[in-house]
Design a protein around this nucleic acid. Structure first.
Lengths: 192, 192
DNA sequence: GTCTATAGGATGATAGAC
DNA sequence: GTCTATCATCCTATAGAC
């Protein structure tokens, strides 16, 4: 467990507050107070409030991009790829839950190049996922339903998992992965 | 199509802006400008920014509560009830998409009694849904998986449907209902 | 590296003329 | 019912002392 630099402490503190109230409702004074210092002192470690947001969001977005690239270059069936993506999302949720909240709720408050970079990463990610689903439908592994409905159902669940994961007393990660994969792959109806 | 009162126009205009940027990032001047008037004039029709938010969110929350009460008092199986809930969510998404955005993203900016009322409605709603899922598991209709995983997967998808519904060129509502119900009930794997 | 002081501007809301 | 003018407060960020 490496000690956090002062800058990392600030970003971590801010991320907790952003998760509760959102980027715009959190002031530099709030962040400073939570760290036991004055707002002006924050600027010795970070250059702006925007920098905090961008650092937080782009770190997680990069994590997703890395994960998706690994899945794509993997030699496995579309169904196996989808399972791996679900598991990857759950891992990221557990490890970056505050950053994920900012990514979900406050990405539109990114500015200029940060915003552009984020939107591109998200678009690419969705496009890759969509392609995998279509391949599964073409090969007959996946039911021939509207691919957007499948893409959206899985993605929206995974994206908001962070809200629920901490609320429900930290269910074991492996149980969560197993059940989540099962819900999407096999549905909830018991046919036996 | 009844003509909107000035107050309703303001709330409708505000809801569009809230959906794009969030409650805190939208100013009274933004709302006024979008209506072609000055910020001070808004106060002839509404008493505060908070009133706009509360009106918007509580209208949708009431809609969900009404729908859930109808489902509960229905004589039908747990699986049929879940199907009805999914269809109800889709109907509300189509008819109240702006209010739904505020409910999802800005409920924490409600104050005092409005906040209390909202949280109670949401808790009751989730508890009712959870009970239905458990009844389905007990009766053997639903796979014996962690009920929270099922509850969460369905709810998070339905709650964020509004983001996606308008982005994807308004897929036919009946196709959407059919495919969405199928994804959750039967999964995506084709077993034939 | 933290502080006080403050610049410079935005914000929600009110008062009062028309 | 809309306007202009304005209040009181809050906001991000900077300057400069210690």
């Amino acid at each position: 467990m490496k000690a956090l630099s002062r800058k990392e402490e600030i970003i971590s503190t801010a991320s907790h507050l952003f998760k509760e109230k959102g980027y715009n409702a959190v002031t530099m004074r709030d962040i400073a107070e939570a760290m036991g210092m004055k707002a002006a002192s924050l600027y010795n470690h970070i250059s702006s409030k925007q920098e905090i947001l961008a650092t937080l969001i782009l770190e997680v977005a990069n994590e997703f991009t890395r994960g998706m690239n690994a899945v794509i270059s993997d030699v496995s069936s579309p169904l196996e790829k989808i399972q791996t993506i679900i598991e990857m999302h759950i891992d990221i949720t557990v490890n970056y839950s505050e950053g994920l909240a900012a990514l979900n709720n406050d990405w539109m408050h990114l500015e200029n190049d940060h915003l552009k970079a984020f939107v591109k990463m998200r678009t690419d990610y969705e496009e890759n996922f969509r392609t995998i689903i279509k391949q599964g439908i073409d090969s007959g592994e996946i039911h021939a339903r509207h691919p957007e409905v499948i893409l959206f159902s899985i993605l929206s669940t995974l994206r908001t998992l962070y809200v629920w994961y901490q609320k429900r007393g930290k269910l074991d990660v492996n149980v969560l992965k197993k059940d989540m994969v099962a819900v999407f792959l096999n549905g909830i109806v018991n046919k036996h």
